[in-house]
Amino acid sequence: MHSFWQSTLLAPDSLPWADAQLPDQFTRFRQQVEAAAIQPAAPLPEPALPPLPPAARQLIQPLAAMDYPATDPRSSFPFPDAAFAGSETAALAHLAQYLQRGLPHSYKATRNGLHGIDYSSKFSPWLACGSLSARLVLQQLHAFETEHGHSDSSYWLWFELLWRDYFKLLQRQHGRRLYHPGGLPQRASPTHNPAAFQRWMAGQTGHALIDAGMRELAATGYLGNRMRQIVASYLIHELQCDWRAGAAWFEACLLDYDCSQNQGNWLYLAGLGTDPRGGRRFNPDKQAAEYDADGHYRQLWSQP
């Protein structure tokens, strides 16, 4: 059996440092990658596969006939609608329509949205399950920029793909240290409030924005990046709960769960990863005023 590294956009052996010397901050990582003009290899052509054996078809036929729960009409990623199914076919169709509609040029301005299909790329569920290749995304993004022009917004999609790489390389470098209660600095175990954690999971903290986000997560398996940061910060910094419990709940809920991304982001917010600012604390009232000024999102998810 031959194994091939395929988890990242950039192959580790193409980077200007060994695994152990990965820059300890994302900004340094990005700057060095860009200064060296490192680009990923082109995607491989589609392989020629033999027909599926009859016995295998018999095994998967019951899966195709399964009934799935109805999609919550409020969902920003309405799985299992056909256009949002987990298949490569759906992934490639989504990527194609995203580019055809010129959405890379509005990505940076809309990426912090709280509700809707188009406010962000929505690539993450397909990237997480392997139905979509990060290298293919970048190749087609470059083709889009060649035809329609580069912009700060289209650049930001590359920026986010680099963040994805950085967390995967951090996992490769540190392994189980990322799961230590005290994170990479190996600090003392964090405090935990089981009752507060239960209220947070159930969307019953009493803060309307936090509760809306937690209800969306439980009902749909999806939550926009901005809301993920807000609810995680609230659990860690306001409720004084163990970040690992929050990471485990995200793991249980998220359609786009990716081990290294989830762990890296929770460590980042807790100040236990590589963030030089020592953690991120979001004021939930300020976030509500900035990103849900009309209260639409809170009203939408006022009930489970």
Rank of each mutant, 00 (worst) to 15 (best):
residue 1 M to D: 08
residue 1 M to L: 11
residue 1 M to P: 07
residue 2 H to C: 02
residue 5 W to N: 08
residue 6 Q to F: 08
residue 7 S to W: 04
residue 10 L to H: 08
residue 16 P to D: 10
residue 16 P to T: 10
residue 17 W to C: 00
residue 18 A to T: 14
residue 19 D to H: 06
residue 19 D to T: 15
residue 38 I to G: 07
residue 38 I to H: 08
residue 41 A to V: 05
residue 45 P to W: 06
residue 46 E to M: 09
residue 47 P to Q: 06
residue 48 A to T: 14
residue 50 P to H: 09
residue 57 R to G: 11
residue 57 R to T: 11
residue 59 L to G: 01
residue 60 I to Q: 12
residue 61 Q to T: 14
residue 64 A to K: 13
residue 66 M to Y: 06
residue 68 Y to G: 03
residue 77 F to S: 04
residue 81 D to E: 15
residue 82 A to W: 01
residue 85 A to W: 04
residue 86 G to Q: 05
residue 87 S to H: 09
residue 90 A to T: 05
residue 94 H to D: 04
residue 96 A to S: 15
residue 97 Q to I: 10
residue 102 G to N: 06
residue 102 G to P: 05
residue 110 T to E: 12
residue 113 G to E: 04
residue 119 Y to Q: 11
residue 121 S to F: 00
residue 126 W to D: 00
residue 127 L to A: 05
residue 131 S to F: 06
residue 131 S to L: 05
residue 134 A to Y: 00
residue 135 R to V: 01
residue 140 Q to I: 01
residue 143 A to K: 06
residue 144 F to N: 01
residue 152 D to Y: 04
residue 152 D to L: 13
residue 153 S to E: 06
residue 154 S to V: 01
residue 155 Y to Q: 14
residue 158 W to F: 10
residue 160 E to Q: 13
residue 163 W to V: 15
residue 163 W to N: 11
residue 165 D to P: 01
residue 177 R to C: 03
residue 179 Y to S: 10
residue 179 Y to A: 12
residue 186 Q to P: 00
residue 188 A to R: 13
residue 188 A to C: 06
residue 201 M to F: 02
residue 203 G to H: 03
residue 214 M to R: 15
residue 215 R to K: 14
residue 215 R to L: 08
residue 216 E to L: 07
residue 222 Y to T: 10
residue 223 L to P: 00
residue 233 S to W: 01
residue 233 S to I: 07
residue 233 S to V: 09
residue 237 H to D: 08
residue 238 E to G: 00
residue 241 C to N: 10
residue 246 G to D: 09
residue 253 C to T: 11
residue 254 L to T: 02
residue 257 Y to M: 03
residue 261 Q to K: 05
residue 269 L to M: 13
residue 270 A to Q: 03
residue 271 G to Q: 02
residue 278 G to T: 08
residue 279 G to S: 06
residue 279 G to F: 04
residue 280 R to E: 15
residue 285 D to T: 14
residue 287 Q to H: 09
residue 291 Y to K: 12
residue 292 D to N: 12
residue 293 A to P: 05
residue 294 D to V: 11
residue 298 R to T: 15
residue 301 W to P: 02
